[in-house]
């Protein structure tokens, strides 16, 4: 009973940072925008006669590494929250602890989706060698 009260207080929603769950898709969107703007501005202003795309590829590579690092950290945090004080996958009870674990699972799944989407965006740069 005492432990339940402790959990109820420790994992109460007022301590939650719900924005943390949206960090992975936000980084994915930011990565897409950065890649798009970099390629558009480079090709419009600086590509030169050879239409070289190497600089843009390097930039997209750096953006991707940074994005995957942030998304990976978020996903790992979410996974750890989901596994917190429980070994099984279920989090169906109407308790602060289960809601805490559910948000962790949601963060982890969003991070997985964002990782795939970010890599899909970056893949485009592998296939294009110039601004044409």
């Amino acid at each position: 009973m005492e432990q339940e009260q402790h959990h109820s207080e420790k994992y109460h929603e007022r301590h939650e940072r719900i924005w943390f769950m949206f960090l992975p898709p936000f980084v994915w969107a930011l990565h897409l925008l950065a890649c798009y703007l970099t390629a558009a501005i480079w090709c419009a202003k600086y590509s030169g006669s050879a239409n070289s795309f190497t600089t843009v590829r390097i930039a997209i590579g750096i953006y991707t590494l940074l994005a995957i690092a942030v998304i990976g950290y978020s996903g790992w945090s979410g996974f750890r929250r989901h596994r917190h004080l429980a070994a099984d996958l279920s989090h169906n009870d109407d308790t602060p602890l289960d809601r805490y674990r559910f948000l962790g699972m949601a963060t982890f799944l969003l991070a997985a989706l964002s990782t795939v989407a970010t890599l899909f965006v970056a893949t485009v740069a592998l296939f294009f060698g110039n601004c044409d």
Binding site: F127, F128, G129
Partner: peptide, 8 residues
């Protein structure tokens, strides 16, 4: 990858 490979 199949689709992107066609584009260049």
């Amino acid at each position: 990858i199949y689709g992107l490979n066609l584009l260049p």
